[in-house]
Nucleic acid binder design. Structure first.
Lengths: 91, 91
DNA sequence: ATTCTAATTAGTTTTTTTTCTAAATAGAGT
DNA sequence: ACTCTATTTAGAAAAAAAACTAATTAGAAT
């Protein structure tokens, strides 16, 4: 069953943008921070919300923490929405 | 292009529940109101957010206003999320 | 052990969302 | 025209989310 925090996670434009950037592979908080005109703590809070949703997970490599998109959960979000809307996956 | 209000629309559990109930056909505000322990104005505000997202549209029939699920927009939400996550629709 | 870099936590303020009660509107039916 | 039912609008209060600065933690590297 889907963690409903996922709906909250995708509700904010910055978090959606982060997810989009993670499609192409893991990024550090610092790399992502460059893209947004927002304080680091605010961004950290967005990361935290993304982690709570399980849409992203982290891995530390030395000094850096890499954010990764969890595609399994991403697929679960899609499935849950298809169910919500009563839309069938074509066979 | 998707109305980003749709992300906001699905962020609240009551609004998701309303969408789910509309799968089976149009419902009046009154019918839906029975399902939730919340004041009518609060629910009306949820309806308004759903309408802003274009996920639902209304049709008046006499004294009743029927809420309908807009499946076209529902599909657009799914497409937008597939794009966001970089998930391909299988052919 | 100190220092450097990366990122988070603490605490607060601002903004947005959700909720409420009371009043108003829209249309149907008498 | 009045009245009844269904729903929304107005205005205010409460709750939740998002933002900031300052301080802290975690680990790497000297």
């Amino acid at each position: 069953m889907l963690n409903t925090n996922a709906y909250k996670a995708i509700a904010h434009p910055i978090r959606r943008d982060i997810l989009k950037r993670l499609r192409s592979g893991p990024k550090t908080a610092g790399e992502l921070a460059k893209e947004y005109d927002i304080s680091k703590p605010s961004l950290s809070s967005h990361f935290s919300i993304l982690k709570d949703s399980d849409l992203v997970f982290t891995r530390r490599d030395g000094n850096h923490i890499y954010y990764n998109l969890n595609l399994t959960v991403a697929n679960e979000v899609l499935s849950a929405l298809m169910d919500l809307f009563g839309i069938e996956k074509e066979t």
